[in-house]
Simulated scan of single mutants.
Amino acid sequence: MNSKQNLQQASYSIGVVSRLTGISAHCLRMWERRHGLGPSRRTEGGQREYSKVDLDHLFLVKQLVDSGMRIKDIAALPQKTLTLISNKPANESIEVSQSFNTVVIGKDFTQLFNKHPNRYPALAVEFPAVSVEQWLNT
């Protein structure tokens, strides 16, 4: 095997991946268990070995999670799809360039948005303290 092949097959321990991505080792293990976001291989002793491809994928996943997306919504998506969603290379952060204003009417919607205020970072929401009927009559 030549040195070029060695570089392509580099592997990273969970500790190194944690330091490089900013994702705790505990979180990496949890994402692996819950969402299948584990390393592509393990040693004979069972230790995780992350490849460069795994590392790049985790950088992109973390970028999207940090931007407000839920891990369960993006964990199963392939890297190509995640890249399209982010419209940015995996090592750049996402900036919200446009926000949307909306009015949420109704108790259930208001409770949903109040419960998850950071889920939609580009959405500016107003919550009038009126019922749907009152709002429609104004």
Rank of each mutant, 00 (worst) to 15 (best):
Thr43Gln: 04
Gln98Ser: 12
Asn91Phe: 10
Cys27Asp: 02
Gln5Leu: 14
Ser24Asn: 03
Gly22Thr: 10
Lys4His: 11
Glu32Gln: 04
Trp31Leu: 11
Arg70His: 04
Asp73Cys: 02
Lys88Met: 14
Met69Val: 00
Thr110Trp: 04
Val65Leu: 03
Leu136Asp: 06
Val130Thr: 09
Gln5Gly: 02
Glu32Thr: 04
Leu60Cys: 14
Thr138His: 07
Ile23Lys: 04
Arg19Leu: 03
Glu133Val: 13
Leu28Met: 03
Ser99Phe: 08
Gly38Asn: 02
Ser131Asp: 02
Val103Thr: 15
Asn137Gly: 03
Lys4Phe: 13
Ile85Cys: 04
Glu126Tyr: 00
Arg29Val: 08
Val130Phe: 10
Gln98Asn: 12
Leu77Tyr: 05
Gly68Thr: 01
Lys52Leu: 11
Gly45Ser: 15
Ala76Arg: 08
Met1Asp: 08
Gly15Lys: 03
Glu44Phe: 03
Pro39Ala: 07
Asp54Cys: 02
Asp73Ser: 13
Ile23Asp: 03
Ala129Tyr: 01
Gly36Tyr: 01
Tyr12Asn: 00
Asn118Glu: 09
Gln47Leu: 09
Ser93Met: 14
Glu92Met: 12
Ser3Val: 14
Ala10Val: 02
Ile94Tyr: 13
Leu28Trp: 06
Lys88Ser: 15
Thr83Gln: 13
Tyr120His: 04
Leu7Thr: 08
Val132Tyr: 08
Cys27Pro: 00
Ile85Gly: 05
Ala75Arg: 06
Leu7Glu: 13
His116Val: 02
Gly38His: 02
Thr102Ala: 15
Thr21Met: 09
Thr81Asp: 09
Arg33Cys: 07
Gln47Phe: 04
Val104Arg: 06
Val130Tyr: 11
Val130Ala: 09
Gly15Trp: 01
Thr83Arg: 14
Arg48Leu: 07
Gly22Asn: 05
Ser13Trp: 01
Gln63Ile: 02
Asp56Arg: 11
Leu37Arg: 02
Ala124Asp: 04
Ser40Leu: 01
Asn91Trp: 06
Lys107Asp: 14
Leu77Ala: 10
Gln98Cys: 12
Phe59Cys: 13
Leu82Cys: 07
Arg34Val: 05
Leu60Ala: 11
Ile71Lys: 10
Leu84Trp: 01
Arg41Asn: 11
Arg33Gly: 03
Ser24Lys: 08
Tyr12Ser: 02
Phe113Met: 02
Ile105Met: 06
Val17Thr: 11
Asp56Lys: 11
Met69Ala: 03
Pro89Asn: 12
Ala129Gly: 06
Leu60Tyr: 01
Gly22Phe: 05
His57Ser: 12
Thr83Gly: 07
Leu37Phe: 04
Ala122Arg: 00
Ser13Tyr: 01
Glu126Asn: 10
Pro128Tyr: 05
Gln47Ser: 07
Asn101Ala: 13
Trp135Val: 00
Leu20Trp: 02
Arg42Val: 08
Val65Arg: 04
Asp73Tyr: 06
Asn91Lys: 07
Asp108Tyr: 08
Ala90Trp: 14
Leu60Lys: 12
Lys4Trp: 10
His57Phe: 03
Lys72Pro: 00
Ile85Phe: 09
Leu64Glu: 10
Gly45Met: 06
